[in-house]
Amino acid sequence: QVNIAPGSLDKALNQYAAHSGFTLSVDASLTRGKQSNGLHGDYDVESGLQQLLDGSGLQVKPLGNNSWTLEP
Protein backbone atom coordinates (compact mmCIF):
# COMPACT_ATOMS: atom_id res chain seq x y z
CA GLN A 1 0.00 0.00 0.00
CA VAL A 2 1.43 3.34 -1.11
CA ASN A 3 0.61 6.60 0.67
CA ILE A 4 2.38 9.61 -0.88
CA ALA A 5 1.04 13.09 -0.18
CA PRO A 6 0.52 15.65 -2.96
CA GLY A 7 3.43 18.01 -3.51
CA SER A 8 6.73 18.21 -5.36
CA LEU A 9 6.95 15.69 -8.20
CA ASP A 10 10.65 15.08 -7.43
CA LYS A 11 9.88 14.20 -3.82
CA ALA A 12 6.90 12.00 -4.74
CA LEU A 13 8.93 10.06 -7.32
CA ASN A 14 11.80 9.53 -4.88
CA GLN A 15 9.42 8.32 -2.16
CA TYR A 16 7.73 5.93 -4.58
CA ALA A 17 11.05 4.51 -5.82
CA ALA A 18 12.25 3.97 -2.24
CA HIS A 19 8.93 2.38 -1.22
CA SER A 20 8.65 0.11 -4.27
CA GLY A 21 12.31 -0.83 -4.66
CA PHE A 22 12.95 0.27 -8.25
CA THR A 23 15.58 2.54 -9.77
CA LEU A 24 14.48 5.80 -11.38
CA SER A 25 16.94 7.70 -13.59
CA VAL A 26 15.63 11.19 -14.31
CA ASP A 27 17.10 14.43 -15.63
CA ALA A 28 16.21 16.86 -12.84
CA SER A 29 15.33 19.57 -15.36
CA LEU A 30 12.33 17.48 -16.49
CA THR A 31 10.68 17.43 -13.06
CA ARG A 32 11.85 20.79 -11.66
CA GLY A 33 8.93 22.89 -10.44
CA LYS A 34 6.32 20.24 -11.28
CA GLN A 35 3.74 19.03 -8.79
CA SER A 36 2.15 15.64 -8.18
CA ASN A 37 -1.31 14.79 -6.88
CA GLY A 38 0.25 12.06 -4.74
CA LEU A 39 -0.50 8.36 -4.74
CA HIS A 40 -2.68 6.25 -2.45
CA GLY A 41 -3.41 2.54 -2.80
CA ASP A 42 -1.88 -0.53 -4.43
CA TYR A 43 -0.15 -0.14 -7.80
CA ASP A 44 2.33 -1.98 -9.95
CA VAL A 45 5.42 0.16 -10.62
CA GLU A 46 4.37 1.45 -14.05
CA SER A 47 0.79 2.27 -13.04
CA GLY A 48 1.99 4.11 -9.95
CA LEU A 49 4.50 6.13 -11.96
CA GLN A 50 1.83 7.04 -14.52
CA GLN A 51 -0.48 8.18 -11.73
CA LEU A 52 2.25 10.32 -10.12
CA LEU A 53 3.06 11.87 -13.52
CA ASP A 54 -0.57 12.66 -14.36
CA GLY A 55 -0.75 16.22 -15.70
CA SER A 56 3.06 16.66 -15.77
CA GLY A 57 3.45 16.14 -19.52
CA LEU A 58 6.01 13.40 -18.82
CA GLN A 59 5.92 9.73 -19.80
CA VAL A 60 7.44 6.72 -18.06
CA LYS A 61 9.82 4.49 -20.03
CA PRO A 62 11.11 1.09 -18.83
CA LEU A 63 14.88 0.52 -19.05
CA GLY A 64 14.82 -3.12 -17.90
CA ASN A 65 16.17 -4.65 -14.68
CA ASN A 66 13.54 -2.83 -12.58
CA SER A 67 14.84 0.55 -13.80
CA TRP A 68 12.76 3.34 -15.27
CA THR A 69 13.26 6.78 -16.77
CA LEU A 70 11.04 9.71 -17.72
CA GLU A 71 10.80 11.51 -21.03
CA PRO A 72 8.76 14.45 -22.33
Rank of each mutant, 00 (worst) to 15 (best):
Q1S: 13
Q1H: 14
N3Y: 14
I4E: 01
I4D: 02
I4Q: 00
A5I: 06
A5V: 07
P6L: 03
P6M: 07
P6C: 10
P6E: 05
P6R: 07
G7T: 09
G7E: 04
G7N: 08
S8C: 13
L9W: 00
D10Q: 12
D10R: 07
K11E: 15
K11P: 03
A12R: 03
A12Q: 04
A12M: 04
A12K: 03
A12V: 15
A12S: 06
A12P: 00
L13S: 02
L13E: 02
N14L: 15
N14P: 00
Q15Y: 09
Q15A: 13
Y16D: 01
Y16R: 00
A18P: 01
A18Q: 12
S20P: 01
G21F: 06
G21R: 07
G21Q: 07
G21P: 00
F22R: 00
F22W: 02
T23G: 06
T23D: 08
L24I: 13
L24W: 07
L24M: 09
S25K: 13
V26L: 10
V26Y: 15
V26A: 10
V26N: 05
A28H: 11
A28M: 10
A28V: 10
L30M: 09
T31P: 04
T31K: 01
T31N: 04
R32W: 14
G33F: 07
G33H: 08
G33K: 05
G33I: 00
K34S: 02
Q35L: 13
Q35V: 13
S36E: 02
S36K: 00
S36R: 00
N37A: 12
N37S: 11
N37C: 14
G38N: 03
G38M: 03
G38H: 04
L39F: 02
L39D: 03
L39Y: 01
L39W: 02
L39G: 01
L39E: 01
G41V: 05
G41L: 03
G41S: 02
D42C: 15
D42Y: 15
Y43I: 04
Y43M: 07
V45C: 07
V45R: 05
V45E: 04
E46V: 13
E46W: 14
E46D: 07
S47G: 09
S47D: 09
S47P: 04
G48Y: 04
G48V: 04
G48F: 05
G48Q: 00
Q50K: 14
Q50Y: 09
Q51M: 13
Q51L: 13
Q51F: 09
L52F: 01
L52M: 06
L52I: 09
L53Y: 00
L53S: 03
D54W: 14
D54G: 09
G55L: 05
G55V: 03
S56E: 01
G57L: 05
L58T: 02
L58E: 00
L58M: 03
L58Q: 00
Q59T: 12
Q59M: 13
K61R: 13
K61W: 06
P62E: 08
L63W: 05
L63K: 08
L63N: 11
L63S: 08
L63C: 11
G64Q: 04
N65L: 10
N65C: 09
S67Y: 09
S67C: 11
S67N: 11
W68I: 05
T69W: 06
T69Q: 10
T69M: 11
L70P: 02
L70V: 14
L70K: 01
E71Q: 10
P72C: 12
P72Q: 10
